[in-house]
Design a protein around this nucleic acid. Sequence first.
DNA 1: GCAGTATTTCCAGGCTTATCGAATTATGCC
DNA 2: GGCATAATTCGATAAGCCTGGAAATACTGC
Lengths: 105, 105
Amino acid sequence: MNVEQAAKQLEALGNTTRLQVYRTLVRAGEAGLPVGQIQERLGIPPSTLSHHLQRLLLTGLVTQERQATTLICRASYPAMNGLIGYLADECCADAGCGTRAENAA
Amino acid sequence: MNVEQAAKQLEALGNTTRLQVYRTLVRAGEAGLPVGQIQERLGIPPSTLSHHLQRLLLTGLVTQERQATTLICRASYPAMNGLIGYLADECCADAGCGTRAENAA
DNA sequence: GCAGTATTTCCAGGCTTATCGAATTATGCC
DNA sequence: GGCATAATTCGATAAGCCTGGAAATACTGC
């Protein structure tokens, strides 16, 4: 994970609407959620949602799988863990801040 | 930590330049770093850097302390931990992805 | 193939951001 | 007060983002 990629992912999550979309997908768990359901739950117009989903897909934070006419969206846990890990490493590499102290021990 | 605040912080870090600034400050540790030194290390024009620092200050990710004519900047570990915690919780709340499994146990 | 549903792409307007040179403010020193 | 250094604010430009209605595309089932 380099700086630019991390920045891209952070930027993707750095928008209230997209963060809500992502949060919704995370809470949906492994089953994922069709685009239409996200749209319905958050009350976002389809085209707007589609743009945001593109952004999340592009950065790898979300994956999609077609099931008949609907597209199932899922939060990518590996991507999220990669990002959290990057932040935690940057934060704790040279300073004792405790966040990942358990892992280090 | 609500969605909008988290999004603001993520957006603040979601820019290559600002992430580099933040990274530099984290690596500087408790001692912090004067604005001028950041500027010198990263080769950013003063005014540009100042704007980015304002953004990081505004979201609470960075703090400043005056020492004579120089301003010492420091990464705020509590803020960072809050953000990482928010992401980790969102990620792991309803799904087993392992990142904070140690804490839960 | 046609009808119907799900989703995306096209297009456009308004808004915010990123950048940085020049001028200004803040602070210390003599 | 006057000078020097540190950093910010001003001003302006170019670029990219967010939004959402309308049209187009994907896919299924009959």
